[in-house]
Write a protein that binds this DNA or RNA. Structure first.
Length: 547
RNA sequence: GUGCCUGUAGCUCAACGGAUAGAGCGCUGGACUCCGGAUCCAGAGGUUGCGGGUUCGAAUCCCGCCAGGCACACCA
């Protein structure tokens, strides 16, 4: 609430000035605490428009603002930064607000109920989730949580690529495993799936049908093995999601788009508009009519559909379903797919801001200091499931949230397994547990806590810093949503936890000889606990009472 | 070869075009007989891959190199 409060004051002044153009400026957290609670570059930006000296402009602004009780003092320094020192009274209002709002603190209605969709985790259902999927799922999950918090109506969706060539290979691969279990000598087909998980599924098949399909291959058998593989793998995926503490609202099948006529609908629409043509026995889409890219095939010469076509149909269907913005989270290997999808969206006449992609870079696994290549086909990879088993849900989620999606991250398996990763999640969780413990102690010492009473006693340096940090929570959430960066939330929680740990170490909070001050400090601690719990919840990480 | 992403402390990562480039781990040294030491305080550690440019101001934007990842299918 602090940043909007300050912005309001500054805007008021700017509006009273005769300006030829709008002045954009930022309010930020100063790098060092000697530089105040909040700072702004407004004077420097305004100086550019007014063609005046930034320092002079800053001093003028400060003069107009300083009467406001919001501030204790305002400093204007070197290049023209304005540093705002908030009055303790202002800061205490933050605590009051957190206590009043409780778990609703930070909630907003920016989205005004707009229907948006996050699509992530989408994968060929040909094997277990990899660590890379884990990163994507955590990013998508956290962003969904934050958007929901900001007033959007969010649907989390996973697209199941259950059509196409790879599914046939999957069915064959499973069938081979099945026959191998029955003692036949067979080889996994070229390009097939060699992972151990298919052996496990094959074992179930043997239990179920015995030797009925031994050495028999026809359409009916293929359908049986396809259905079996898909349902087993999907149910394993859901189990993994469960371990990760999440699930999707919708699992959308690629096949269903073919069956319900969406693909046909899209095709005839594009044909009517003249965006497709025939060449070499295939049907092509005129990507080049929209962007500088090569045209792409929609229907192969053997009559089957490409992934591109069904994906266009999928997004067309998304719009029909009522989503006004969709956010697809893709691995960076799909970046080449973006321009042609954009072109297709345009061809369909969908709004420009409808289709959005958030790319994330790959996870590189390191074992014994060496890079491990992940490949589903070769069956050599560390699965998300294994990772969760090794390091647990909280650390996994926190770790993936911590990094900017756009960084190539190096995941050291040995470090993770040894649990010496020193994941900062413990640091944040510990702060939460500490507050809980304070209340246990207070109760033991017979102190009757009244939330919000005696706040006027708060005002030393450590308390002020904690209050300031509490007061920027909602701005952090907006930042996360604006830049699609969950790492801004983890960074914030660490900062808040740090300021609390420092406060805790330096001051006695539960002091029976000073009940009033104890009450004030417990109120502050409770506010910290509330925000930490809220932040951790958005990350999908537990906020333990004890550790 | 063309396009996208990345290059910051020994390692993993931060830093809306802003102030003295910050954390954690690791390293060195310290902390209340009292609320949990999974904590706190301090120190060492940097030519932000290299070279130009843009401006009041560049890790960030532009250009050129170098290095790594990814993509360039009638695969998904």
């Amino acid at each position: 609430m602090l940043i909007p409060l300050l912005r309001e004051r500054i805007d008021e002044i700017l509006e009273s000035l005769p300006l030829s153009e709008k002045v954009d400026y930022e309010i930020e957290i100063p790098p060092r605490k000697e530089l105040g609670d909040l700072s702004s570059n407004v004077a420097m930006r305004l100086a550019r428009v007014l063609r005046k000296d930034p320092m002079a402009v800053g001093l003028e602004l400060a003069e107009k603002l300083k009467a406001d009780t919001l501030f204790e003092k305002i400093e204007v320094v070197k290049p023209g930064f304005m540093n705002f020192f908030l009055s303790s009274e202002t800061l205490r209002r933050v605590v009051k607000r957190v206590l009043e709002d409780g778990e609703n603190y930070g909630k907003k209605d920016l989205g005004k109920g707009e229907r948006v969709q996050f699509e992530y985790g989408s994968a060929n259902p040909t094997g277990p989730f990899t660590v890379g999927h884990g990163r994507q799922i955590v990013i998508g999950d956290v962003l969904s949580n934050v958007f929901r918090e900001l007033g959007y109506e969010v649907t989390r969706e996973m697209y199941i690529n259950d059509a196409g060539r790879q599914i046939k290979l999957l069915a064959q691969s499973l069938w081979v495993r099945y026959n191998q279990l029955l003692g036949l000598e067979m080889e996994i087909p070229e390009g097939g799936y060699r992972g151990e998980y298919l052996v496990d599924i094959a074992r179930k098949v043997v239990e179920e049908v015995g030797e009925r399909y031994k050495n028999v291959w026809n359409e009916e058998v293929e359908r049986f093995f396809r259905e079996k593989a898909l349902s087993e793998i999907l149910s394993n995926m859901k189990e993994t999601l469960n371990k990760l503490g999440t699930s999707f609202d919708v699992y959308y099948s690629e096949t269903s788009l073919i069956e319900d006529g969406t693909v046909k609908e899209v095709l005839s629409f594009l044909e009517e508009k003249g965006f497709i043509y025939q060449k070499d026995g295939a049907v092509w889409f005129k990507v080049s009519a929209f962007v500088e890219e090569e045209d792409k095939v929609l229907i192969k010469s053997d009559g089957s559909y490409t992934y591109f076509l069904t994906d266009i149909a999928y997004h067309y269907r998304k719009y029909k379903r009522g989503f006004r913005k969709v956010y697809d989270i893709w691995g960076s290997d799909h970046h080449g797919h973006i321009p042609r999808m954009r072109a297709a969206m345009k061809a369909l006449g969908l709004p420009d801001d409808f289709f959005n992609v958030i790319l994330h870079q790959f996870v590189t696994l390191k074992r014994e200091g060496k890079v491990v290549r992940m490949s589903t086909r070769a069956g050599e990879f560390v699965t998300l499931d294994e990772l969760l088993e090794e390091v647990g849900r909280d650390a996994t989620r926190y770790f993936f949230s911590m990094m900017d999606p756009n960084t190539h991250l190096v995941f050291d398996i040995d470090l993770a397994k040894a649990k010496t990763m020193d994941n900062p999640v413990y640091y944040v969780q510990y702060a939460h547990a500490r507050v809980v413990n304070l209340f246990n102690t207070a109760e033991k010492k017979g102190i009757a806590f009244v939330p919000g009473e005696g706040l006027e006693l708060l005002g030393n340096e450590e308390e002020r810093l904690v209050m300031r940090n509490l007061g920027i929570f909602e701005s952090v959430l907006e930042d996360v949503a604006k830049s699609f960066a969950p790492n801004k939330l983890t960074g914030y929680l660490q900062t808040l936890a740090e300021s609390f740990h420092t406060f805790y170490t330096k001051h006695t909070i539960v002091d029976p000889s000073n009940v009033a001050l104890t009450n004030a400090r417990l109120s502050l601690s409770l506010a910290v606990k509330t925000v930490l719990a809220k932040g951790l919840k958005l990350l999908g990480v537990t906020a333990p009472d004890r550790m």
